[in-house]
Simulated scan of single mutants.
Amino acid sequence: MTAWWASVWSRSRNPRPAAKFVEYMVGQEAGELWTDQGGQIPVRQSVWRQPRFRDPRFAAMGTVIDGLLQDGIIIPTTCNMTRFDSDLVALAAGQ
């Protein structure tokens, strides 16, 4: 799918509890919570395969996931950053 990362700082005062937290956050249970309650695209395919995510309220998420699996990236079509940047520069210049 897609992914985010988490790590434990090498100078952490509590590396073992921090590692346990990271382990939980990238695990199945947290992934299901992030997807179900947080509306986040899961980083684990095993999460997405759960039957509850076939519910129609997750249909839009399924469309995004299909695009990621097909193309590896999704480029926003409604957010034209070039236009945004030029408008911002014009605004800053008082135009």
Rank of each mutant, 00 (worst) to 15 (best):
V26I: 15
D55P: 03
R11L: 13
V89I: 11
T82W: 05
L91D: 08
V26E: 07
P56Q: 00
Q28N: 11
R83D: 10
M81S: 03
D87G: 01
P56S: 01
V89H: 01
A6K: 15
G67E: 11
R44T: 03
V22A: 09
Q70T: 15
M25C: 10
R54P: 04
L33Y: 13
R44C: 07
G31K: 00
F84I: 05
A18T: 14
S7P: 09
D66T: 15
S86C: 01
A6E: 14
E23Y: 14
L69S: 08
Q45L: 03
T2E: 03
D71P: 04
V26F: 12
Q40G: 06
S7T: 15
F53K: 02
P56H: 03
K20R: 15
S46R: 02
D66A: 15
E29R: 05
A19H: 13
T35H: 09
I41L: 13
L91G: 01
R11I: 09
D71I: 05
V8P: 03
P76E: 02
G38F: 04
R13C: 11
I73R: 12
L68N: 03
T35R: 06
A30D: 08
R44I: 01
L91F: 13
Q37K: 12
I73Y: 10
S46K: 06
D36M: 02
W4M: 06
L33F: 13
G67P: 10
G67R: 07
P15R: 01
G67F: 07
G39T: 08
Q95W: 00
G39A: 09
G27D: 01
W34D: 07
T77L: 04
V22P: 07
V8R: 10
D71K: 06
V26D: 05
I73W: 09
A30K: 06
L69N: 14
F21Q: 10
M81P: 02
I65Y: 05
P17N: 00
A90P: 00
T78V: 02
F84R: 10
T77Y: 06
Q28R: 13
V64E: 05
